[in-house]
Design a protein around this nucleic acid. Sequence first.
RNA 1: GCGGGCGUAGCUCAGUUGGUUAGAGCGCCAGAUUGUGGAUCUGGAGGUCGCCGGUUCAAUCCCGGUCGCUCGCCCCA
Length: 424
Amino acid sequence: MSKPQPARGMRDILPTEAAIRDWVQAKILATYRRFGYTRIETPALENIQLLTGDDGGENAKLVFKVLKRGEKLDLAKPGMSEDDLVDLGLRFDLTVPLVRFFTTNRAQLPRVLKAIQIGPVWRAERPQKGRYRQFTQCDIDIIGLEEGLAEAELLVASAEALIAVGFEGFTIRLNDRRILTAIAAASGVEEARHGSVFITLDKLDKIGVDGVRKELAQQGFAEAQIDRLSTMLAGVDGISVEAFAKRLGASLDAKVPALIGEVLDAVGADAGNRYRVAFDPTLVRGMGYYTGPVFEIAQPGYDFSIAGGGRYDRMVGKLSGEEAPACGFSIGFERVVAVLMDKTFVPPAEAKLTALLVPEGTALARALTAARMLRSEGLAPSLFPLEKKLGRQLEGLQASGFTHYATLDGDGPPAIRAMKAPAR
RNA sequence: GCGGGCGUAGCUCAGUUGGUUAGAGCGCCAGAUUGUGGAUCUGGAGGUCGCCGGUUCAAUCCCGGUCGCUCGCCCCA
């Protein structure tokens, strides 16, 4: 007697969570609009070529692919491969579709596009705690601005959005892809293998220096390379970008630490004591498309990050042949909601949710009139038949969010009563 | 893609060293009592013990497979 379930890794959103999600989304959108960003939407499906290009990195392997339809789906043809059967895929992030959107609609868009996107993305990976195969992302991106102003504004706007939904005491970690490249180069790692060094480096806070050394050794890196790498990264906790740049010497362009330093100072000043911004040379970020500054926000007490982003200056050019600088910051909507659910957060109601209890035999017209009257007084009345066991009924209504009730008896206006605090 | 744990009532879980009719709490339904806030009492419905196969006189229990859920790894938000 197995009941139907949602597809693996997918989940239903129940009323309590849906209310939180609506509230979070409204807060985030309102914040971003005050920074001058405009909302855009792109389709859930994109042509498969866009998604399986090399810009998605590992994510490209996790695309949900969609079969061709009708005559184009010729299963009988010999020697069929997956590519022959598939022509569409579900987006795995919002950045690749945004770049496609920008190249498609460039003529009608402002020279500098500041876009908000909020919507579901899909990844065909194994579900796990806090990880689903469908999840919502909330991105802001700036296409058309070189590094500096864009990064500073994205960081501040995202931090303000998190503050607006009640987060505090978080830290924005900031690094730059070029600093990572310099670290790898100065350690004598050939360029083709930078990626795997970065991925291992990213785990430093989780597995420690010894863990990183061990993993690099397993991947076949030379003792000398590993030694140089760990010397460079020794005691970097809280190090200034200027001090760290000295360790790298000539392998790093001096403009990079200057830029990062300026962003840190500016955002730090704007933050005051509400949140922190810190340089972290071990911050990597998974996506292969990042070219410059990268950043991430973690919430104390949770081991996953709640926001991440960076600069991806090559992507537009790769797709359209015409370059445009781009930078974005993505809030992990699901994780923000998860944190609020943990706190059993209840969004403030706009109107008093009032159950209007209608005794048997009451004329429908009378019920509607009474409800209309309450609505005009700013309440949110909802009609239910009055049940025999009032206590039971009120308890149930209270559980689904009603804060007030009234019984429709007699001819006069119904008397609104507040629900009692739940008995313990 | 790789590894561990778990599938018994609507929910949370007991249980059987393999042996007639598989249990509790909560919830649900009906009635009584109360008579416009949760109480109490009585009665009731609801399970091919995830699915398929094997071992056995006998399987919810042991074995194999499968599906689902879950927690890690890889990777990621």
